[in-house]
């Protein structure tokens, strides 16, 4: 079944965080998470499987930082192999696989020196590798600069392949409302992402589930596209030398269920675990 066919029938639940679980499985700060798709294949498949067992409808590939720009900086050249392994691992657990594309971490002017053309080229290659390896959906997420998000959507669409594209921005809550760190409002983001060819828009990261619920409510009035939200389970804090996120599965799931009144797809971002996804699934029933 395709994503659009699923959407006609029901609300969709994505998986939760990958990075924080990799860290709990011993990933070091100098490790490249995407390399685990090859070196720690069984662990990655297990994480995907844990999310499916918890009730996720589909999973995201472990390719958030998998842009050629980012990976080649780490001295990696086998980018196609890394990405196809990631898709293989996700496919082992899930019938529908979402190819994940995160930001490059570089900044456009005036903050940095990267150009939109360079971003387009790297995203085009990442999207091509993901699609060649058989992903069913592309998710462009955690975008803090609308221009970078648009470069990514344009890059996927330039491949001329019919594939659902979801694009989510990262917003901060300010006195005057929700804005990206660059100052773009949700309405502008949704409108321009739609124009570029995104089928589903929304937000992920930074906001916890309380704030994300507020954003979801507002967002429903701003676009007619299906909406996707993935909230953080609070903000990361160090407790006894360990990273801790404050929102419990119960609290988080309650908010995410409320978000479903306004959204079509939900999932977990930083700090969420299979326990969070399981709780949401229980409450969706």
């Amino acid at each position: 079944m395709s994503l659009f066919e699923m959407l006609k029938k029901e609300k969709i639940l994505l998986d939760g965080a990958m990075g924080s679980i990799l860290i709990s499985k011993g990933m070091k700060m100098e490790d490249v998470p995407e390399l685990w798709n090859i070196k720690r294949k069984e662990d990655i498949i297990q994480i995907h499987q844990d999310y499916i067992d918890a009730g996720a409808d589909l999973v995201l590939t472990n390719t958030f930082g998998g842009s050629p720009m980012k990976l080649s900086e780490k001295g990696l050249e086998n980018i196609a192999e890394i990405i196809s392994s990631a898709v293989y691992n996700a496919r082992k657990a899930s019938e529908i696989v979402v190819g994940d594309i995160g930001p490059t971490g570089k900044f456009l002017a005036p903050m940095g020196k990267i150009t939109e053309e360079e971003l387009f080229v790297t995203f085009q290659l990442q999207a091509k590798y993901l699609i060649d390896a058989g992903v069913d959906v592309i998710l462009i997420e955690t975008m803090y600069d609308l221009r970078e998000a648009l470069a990514a959507v344009n890059a996927v669409r330039s491949l001329n392949i019919q594939i659902p594209v979801m694009a989510t921005m990262t917003f901060d809550k300010k006195k005057r409302g929700f804005f990206t760190i660059m100052g773009d409002k949700p309405e502008k983001c949704y409108e321009e992402l739609e124009k570029a060819g995104a089928d589903i828009v929304g937000a992920n990261c930074t906001l916890d589930s309380d704030d994300m619920l507020e954003l979801a409510k507002i967002s429903r009035t701003l676009t007619s596209l299906p909406l996707l939200f993935q909230a953080n389970a609070g903000q990361p804090e160090m407790l006894d030398g360990k990273v801790h996120y404050a929102q419990t599965p119960d609290h988080y799931a309650k908010n995410m269920i409320s978000i479903l009144e306004y959204a079509d797809i939900i999932g977990g971002c930083c700090g969420t675990t299979p326990a969070h996804i399981r709780k949401i699934r229980e409450m969706m029933k």
Binding site: P110, M111, K174, K175, R176, F179, I181, M182, G183
Partner: peptide
């Protein structure tokens, strides 16, 4: 800080 300006304005101002 008030959320009237964002990163690009702050950066340009500093420049």
């Amino acid at each position: 800080e008030e959320g009237e300006y964002f990163l690009p304005e702050l950066m340009l101002g500093a420049e």
